[in-house]
Amino acid sequence: MFKRLMMVALLVIAPLSAATAADQTNPYKLMDEAAQKTFDRLKNEQPQIRANPDYLRTIVDQELLPYVQVKYAGALVLGQYYKSATPAQREAYFAAFREYLKQAYGQALAMYHGQTYQIAPEQPLGDKTIVPIRVTIIDPNGRPPVRLDFQWRKNSQTGNWQAYDMIAEGVSMITTKQNEWGTLLRTKGIDGLTAQLKSISQQKITLEEKK
């Protein structure tokens, strides 16, 4: 169930391209415009997507990853294993993690069937560096609404905000991946996880038929 919630949630996290980005210092504006741009692209490019579902990787690479804190999220997933990894191991892992996100997020976007969304009203940021933004996803086919909290983090150097995690039903996506990959990290280390991520990233994206 959580895996499905995570995939549905990713439908609204794909941010804007650099040329049309919203105010990078306001995570609420980023979330709002990102959702609108993403849904528009999914709707307008269905012919290309249906002809070649792996085209979704391109959308992810162009529109999402430049505005997601990939390395920060990847380091959180590694936890204690990050500090013990060599620079070469980290570089290989982050490259594999990025390719994994292209496949995983692309597969999530393949679930698009006309969903709509509501974003919580903007709250004062103050001096906060981590801000959760509640998004409610509404399914046109009558499924119950899904309420999610996207975690946005302020870059201490640039002042810009980027998304790095999502919490559904009190469970963090980062925590879920830590639990899912924990045994592999304990037995085969970061190299074993890197190899698995490379394998997963090679899987073809498949479209979910409308139910």
Rank of each mutant, 00 (worst) to 15 (best):
Asn44Arg: 14
Asp165Met: 06
Thr176Gly: 00
Arg134Ile: 04
Ala110Leu: 15
Glu208His: 12
Met6Thr: 04
Ala163Thr: 15
Val8Gly: 03
Asp165Cys: 09
Asn155Thr: 04
Val60Tyr: 03
Ile190Val: 03
Pro15Val: 02
Met111Asp: 01
Thr194Val: 03
Asp127Gln: 10
Gln62Thr: 08
Gln157His: 08
Lys43Val: 05
Ile174Met: 10
Ile138Pro: 13
Thr175Met: 06
Phe97Asp: 05
Ile138Asp: 12
Gly126Ile: 09
Gln36Leu: 12
Tyr164Arg: 02
Val131Gln: 03
Pro53Val: 08
Trp152Glu: 03
Ile130Lys: 04
Gln202Ala: 03
Val135Pro: 03
Ala22Gly: 09
Met7Trp: 07
Pro145Gln: 07
Arg57Ser: 15
Asp139Asn: 07
Tyr81Ser: 10
Leu65Phe: 15
Lys177His: 14
Glu169Thr: 04
Thr183Ala: 00
Glu122Asp: 10
Pro47Ile: 09
Pro124Gln: 11
Leu78Pro: 02
Met111Leu: 09
Val131Phe: 00
Ile138Thr: 09
Ala22Lys: 09
Gln80Leu: 08
Ile200Lys: 07
Tyr105Leu: 02
Lys83Tyr: 01
Ala34Pro: 02
Trp181Gly: 15
Tyr105Cys: 04
Met31Trp: 04
Thr38Tyr: 07
Tyr67Phe: 09
Leu185Tyr: 11
Lys204Met: 13
Leu16Thr: 07
Gln202Ile: 12
Val146Trp: 10
Leu16Ala: 09
Gly79Asn: 03
Gln36Met: 15
Pro140Trp: 13
Leu76Phe: 05
Pro124Leu: 12
Phe150Cys: 02
Lys210Ala: 13
Asp23Met: 09
Ile137Leu: 13
Ala34Glu: 05
Gln157Gly: 07
Tyr105Asp: 07
Ile174Trp: 09
Ser84Tyr: 13
Arg143Asp: 01
Asn160Trp: 11
Ile138Val: 07
Leu42Asn: 06
Asp165His: 00
Gln151Met: 06
Asn26Asp: 09
Gln202His: 12
Thr20Arg: 12
Val77Trp: 05
Ala73Glu: 01
Lys177Leu: 06
Asn160Ile: 10
Ile167His: 11
Ala104Phe: 05
Leu30Gly: 14
Gly189Lys: 03
Ala19Leu: 02
Gln118Leu: 13
Ile174His: 11
Gln123Tyr: 13
Leu76Tyr: 03
Met166Cys: 01
Leu125Val: 14
Val60Gln: 05
Tyr100Val: 14
Lys211Ser: 13
Glu33Gly: 04
Trp181Arg: 15
Asn26Leu: 06
Gln46Ser: 06
Leu10Met: 08
Leu193Gly: 06
Ala195Leu: 13
Gly106Met: 04
Thr58Ile: 12
Ala21Phe: 07
Phe150Val: 15
Leu184Gln: 09
Ala120Trp: 15
Ile200Gly: 07
Leu5Cys: 05
Lys154Arg: 14
Val77Ile: 04
Pro124Cys: 12
Asn155Gln: 02
Val70Gly: 14
Ile200Ser: 05
Glu209His: 14
Leu16His: 07
Ile13Glu: 00
Leu193Arg: 15
Glu99Asn: 15
Ile190Cys: 06
Pro132Cys: 02
Glu208Ile: 10
Asp61Ser: 12
Gln162Phe: 00
Ser17Ile: 08
Thr176Val: 02
Ser156Gly: 03
Lys71Thr: 08
Asn26Ser: 08
Leu65Glu: 10
Asp127Trp: 07
Gln62Lys: 11
Ile137Ala: 01
Thr206Pro: 11
Tyr117Lys: 04
Tyr67Asp: 04
Gln80Gly: 07
Thr136Lys: 14
Gln203Pro: 11
Thr176Gln: 00
Lys29Phe: 14
Ser156Ala: 00
Leu193Cys: 04
Leu11Trp: 06
Asn26Pro: 06
Ala9Thr: 06
Lys210Asn: 09
Thr86Tyr: 07
Leu56Asp: 04
Gly79Val: 02
Arg90Asp: 04
Lys3Cys: 01
Phe97Gln: 05
Glu180Ile: 03
Asp32Arg: 09
Thr194Gln: 10
Arg186Thr: 01
Lys37Thr: 08
Pro87Asp: 09
Gln107Glu: 08
Gln48Gly: 12
Asn141Gly: 14
Asn26Thr: 06
Gln89Phe: 04
Pro144Thr: 06
Tyr81Arg: 09
